[in-house]
C-alpha cells in the first residue's frame, strides 16, 4: 500500500531559502540543498522547491540549485514557481528535477501539460492549483499570488488538467494559506473525489491533526512549511503520530 507523504516546501529566491509573509520582509533562512538534506535525513518523503521570485526565473541560482539537488538528494523533489514555458520545464527536468510544478502557465496555455506529459511522462508533471473560496463547496482558480481570479471553477479545472496530462495536483487553498488553521478540507475533499491522480493538500497546515484531516478527505500527501522549518527534528514525531492514528507512513 502506498504511504501517505509529508512534503516540506522550501521557498527559494536567488538561490537561498527565504521566509516571509506574502513576499514582504523576506528573511534568509538557509541554503536550499543543505536544508533539504536535513529534512530528508529526518524522514521527509519528498520536497518542493518553489522559486517565489517568478519574474526572474531562469537565472543561474535555480539551475545550480536543481543540479546540486539532483546529485545530492536521496529523495524526490519538485521544482516550481514561474515555470512559464515548455523550455523552462524541460530544462529543470533535464537537470534532474523529478517533477516540475506548473501553475499560471497551465491556466494560460493548458497544452503545456500535454506536451510535458508526452515528453517526460505524467508522473513528472504536477499541476499547482491555487483556489479561492467563492461559495459553499465552490472554488475559483486564482493566479499571480492570488491577485488574479481566472474565472475557472476549481473542480472543473482539476478535471481538465488531469485530462490534459498532469500526473499530480498540488491544491493550495488561498484562504487557508499561512493561517495555520488547517487545510480547506471541503475543496480538498471535492478535488480528491473528482480526480484519479494523487492530490497534495497545501495551505494552512499548523498541527499534526491538520495533516490527518487532509488524508481523511483523500489527499495522498500533505505540503508543510512553517511546522517543519521551525523544528525539522520534529518530523519523525509527526510521522509517528500519523502512523499511530492509523495512516500508512514511511517510518
Amino acid at each position: 500500500m502506498v504511504k501517505k507523504r509529508l512534503i516540506p516546501c522550501l521557498d527559494v529566491t536567488k538561490g537561498r531559502v527565504v521566509k516571509g509573509v506574502r513576499f514582504v520582509e523576506l528573511r534568509d533562512i538557509g541554503d536550499p540543498v543543505e536544508m533539504a538534506t536535513r529534512y530528508s535525513e529526518y524522514g521527509a518523503d519528498e520536497l518542493v522547491f518553489l522559486d517565489i521570485t517568478a519574474t526572474v526565473f531562469g537565472h543561474a541560482p535555480i539551475v545550480e540549485l536543481v543540479e546540486r539537488a539532483a546529485t545530492e538528494l536521496e529523495i524526490p523533489f519538485t521544482v516550481g514557481g514561474g515555470v512559464s514555458t515548455l523550455g523552462h520545464a524541460r530544462r529543470l527536468l533535464r537537470l534532474g528535477a523529478d517533477k516540475v510544478a506548473v501553475n499560471r502557465a497551465a491556466v494560460e496555455r493548458p497544452e503545456l501539460l500535454t506536451e510535458l506529459a508526452e515528453e517526460f511522462g505524467a508522473q513528472a508533471v504536477v499541476c499547482a492549483i491555487d483556489s479561492k473560496k467563492v461559495g459553499p463547496g465552490k472554488g475559483e482558480v486564482v493566479t499571480h499570488g492570488a491577485r488574479k481570479p481566472r474565472g475557472l471553477d476549481t473542480i472543473e479545472w482539476a478535471l481538465e488538467v488531469v485530462e490534459r496530462g498532469a500526473g499530480e495536483i498540488m491544491l493550495t487553498s488561498i484562504d487557508a494559506d499561512g493561517t495555520r488553521a488547517g487545510y480547506d478540507l471541503e475543496i480538498t475533499g471535492l478535488v480528491c473525489d473528482a480526480v484519479s491522480v494523487p492530490v497534495i493538500a497545501s495551505g494552512g497546515a499548523g498541527t499534526v491533526k491538520h495533516l490527518a484531516e487532509a488524508f481523511e478527505v483523500g489527499a495522498e500527501a500533505a505540503l508543510v512549511a512553517s511546522i517543519v522549518h521551525e523544528a525539522p527534528e520534529g518530523i519523525p514525531e509527526i510521522k509517528r503520530e500519523l502512523e499511530e492514528a492509523g495512516w500508512p507512513m514511511r517510518i
Partner: peptide, 9 residues
C-alpha cells in the same frame, strides 16, 4: 490513483 506515486513496501 494513477500514477502510482510515492513510497511503497
Amino acid at each position: 490513483r494513477v500514477p502510482h506515486m510515492g513510497w511503497n513496501t
